[in-house]
């Protein structure tokens, strides 16, 4: 049997991440970061946000969003570096930095959302 190439898998993750980030990231940025900072909306309170994130599905979703969006960004940026700067000879370094960064970010997301420290302080 022919070895399964890696590209289709990466592209699937890239597409899933692109779709999720296109649908979800602007509104999250606007509600959580931009609008409160500009004074357009009240900043969401601590109790409200922790109760939202207390649901495991919410945390799972946030992890999936972050991880896939990071893979999307890594994959796209890797090609941008190849095409835009013609540094294909640095292939391995670029791959490690891009996908490695996405992996590190995903691990960070899992760590933040699935280890508990916030609750004892409530």
């Amino acid at each position: 049997m022919r070895r399964t190439p890696i590209e289709p898998i990466l592209w699937s993750l890239f597409s899933a991440g692109g779709m999720l980030s296109a649908l979800f990231i602007p509104v999250l940025l606007f509600i959580l970061v931009l609008a409160p900072a500009l004074g357009w909306l009240p900043a969401p309170g601590y109790a409200q946000l922790t109760s939202l994130l207390s649901h495991p599905l919410a945390r799972l979703f946030l992890i999936a969003l972050c991880a896939l969006a990071l893979v999307h960004a890594a994959h796209r940026f890797r090609y941008t570096l190849y095409d835009g700067l013609q540094i294909k000879h640095l292939n391995e370094l670029v791959n490690i930095l891009c996908y490695g960064g996405a992996l590190a970010g995903s691990v960070w997301a899992i760590f933040l959302l699935f280890t508990r420290v916030a609750e004892p302080r409530l």
């Binding site: 399964t4 289709p8 898998i9 592209w11 699937s12 597409s15």
Partner: peptide
Amino acid sequence: KLTAALHSLKS
């Protein structure tokens, strides 16, 4: 790309 990706996920 979509066809090939679905094919490879299936495999």
